[in-house]
Amino acid sequence: MTNNELIKLNQIEQILNCLLALIQKQENTQNHASILTQKELLSILKISPNTLKSWEKTGLKRLEPPIEGTRTVYYRMEDVLTYLTP
């Protein structure tokens, strides 16, 4: 296998692991429209904040509360699953 093929396989494996973690989290919640904080999502997926920012630039939707001065960012589980599934 070439180096590029190994890199692609590692990327696919990472995406599949992310999907699996999200699906397991969704099954554990009663509410299918669950909303996660940025910190929770980073912890579940074991990704860096820069990866999340990159995903936002390429289409992942973020939710921000309409309260002035609040910096907490949220993500809908459904949006994350939709983004990660081609």
Rank of each mutant, 00 (worst) to 15 (best):
M1H: 06
M1N: 06
T2E: 10
N3L: 15
N3H: 10
N4P: 00
N4L: 15
N4F: 07
E5G: 03
I7N: 01
K8Y: 12
K8L: 13
K8D: 03
N10T: 15
Q11I: 05
Q11P: 00
Q11M: 04
I12S: 01
L16Q: 11
N17V: 10
C18W: 14
C18S: 12
L20V: 09
A21I: 01
L22Y: 14
L22I: 11
Q26S: 13
Q26T: 12
E27A: 12
E27V: 09
E27L: 14
N28G: 14
N28D: 08
Q30R: 14
Q30K: 15
N31A: 11
A33W: 02
A33F: 05
S34H: 06
S34Q: 11
T37W: 14
Q38K: 15
Q38L: 10
E40T: 11
E40R: 02
E40L: 05
I44K: 14
L45M: 15
I47P: 07
I47A: 08
S48T: 04
S48F: 02
S48A: 07
P49K: 15
P49Y: 06
P49R: 15
N50G: 01
L52C: 01
K53N: 02
W55N: 09
W55E: 01
E56K: 15
K57F: 00
K57T: 03
T58Y: 02
G59L: 11
G59W: 00
L60Q: 08
L60M: 06
L60T: 07
K61M: 03
R62F: 02
R62N: 05
L63S: 05
L63G: 04
P66S: 10
I67E: 15
T70P: 01
T72Y: 06
Y75G: 05
Y75F: 07
R76V: 01
R76K: 06
R76L: 05
M77S: 12
E78S: 12
E78I: 15
D79T: 08
D79W: 04
D79N: 13
V80A: 08
L81E: 05
L81V: 12
T82H: 06
T82L: 12
L84Y: 06
L84D: 13
T85F: 04
T85K: 07
P86N: 08
